[in-house]
Design a protein around this nucleic acid. Sequence first.
DNA 1: CTTGCGCCTTAGAATCATTCCAATTTGTTG
DNA 2: CAACAAATTGGAATGATTCTAAGGCGCAAG
Lengths: 141, 141
Amino acid sequence: MSISPQNADALAERLSHSGLRATPQREVVYNVLLKKRDHPTADEVFARVKNELPTISLATVYNCLETLVQCELVRAVNFERGPTRYCPNLRPHAHFHDEHTGKTHDIDLPPGLLEKVSSVLPQGYDAKSVEIIFRGKTASN
Amino acid sequence: MSISPQNADALAERLSHSGLRATPQREVVYNVLLKKRDHPTADEVFARVKNELPTISLATVYNCLETLVQCELVRAVNFERGPTRYCPNLRPHAHFHDEHTGKTHDIDLPPGLLEKVSSVLPQGYDAKSVEIIFRGKTASN
DNA sequence: CTTGCGCCTTAGAATCATTCCAATTTGTTG
DNA sequence: CAACAAATTGGAATGATTCTAAGGCGCAAG
Ligand SMILES: [Mn+2]
Ligand SMILES: [Mn+2]
Ligand SMILES: [Zn+2]
Ligand SMILES: [Zn+2]
């Protein structure tokens, strides 16, 4: 159940690029996010990571998640009050929050959409990022 | 500094439509949101409302805000960990979060944009609402 | 190699926004 | 008025996150 080589490398590279170390905790946290991409909370990540590193602390999970977000390997997502969720999908995508199941789905965006959306900004507004969140239901209910 | 007649009416109408009462607390909370549209937190609303109703409690401010959100007179906005912010702008609009000043600006959206954006959803996804958040800086910095 | 030092992890305390609760108060209806 | 329901209130409780202080670990200089 170890991290796949290229992911481990990507991680190690990004970390050292920022003068940080590739620790076992960081690797396992990142691996857990890649393995099940269901936008888990820190608590959920904690529970999953414990299987491989039974002595890890919740504080470390928070620290690792924060580090991964800084390195831009992971996105922190907040679309409602309630715990932050974490997403390792680096492609441009929106989030669809199913109000029945509570689950969050990634919606891939066609190239140019984010630019199109950003073009509604008036003079003087310089957006570094755009986030799109849908709320509703899916056919499966 | 009282609420303007049509707003008071709109509020009373929406409330009674849901079987709720138009209380002084609810009126002043709504009025405060309309008067300074800077997306205040519950604490900030509390501080402003106290000027007119010095004995109001924070719990009541939370209750009133919740009620206004239920009546769809106000939107609760969450784009980051941190307190929920409240917006009385009912037109379709996006939010621009200025990372320097911390202020949030409303960006009016051209008609059809939200539909256009929603059209990227695959079969089976039925969105009830779409939210767009920009982050970046404004010319004024 | 060994030592020194800074990065990391850890457990638990502290913080902060929000929600919950139980006790009034207020408004409406008969 | 009397009764009942809706609303407000202050304070306790909750839950996610952050902070703090102590110890551990890895690497670079000697
Ligand atoms: Mn969390
Ligand atoms: Mn708040
Ligand atoms: Zn995602
Ligand atoms: Zn707004």
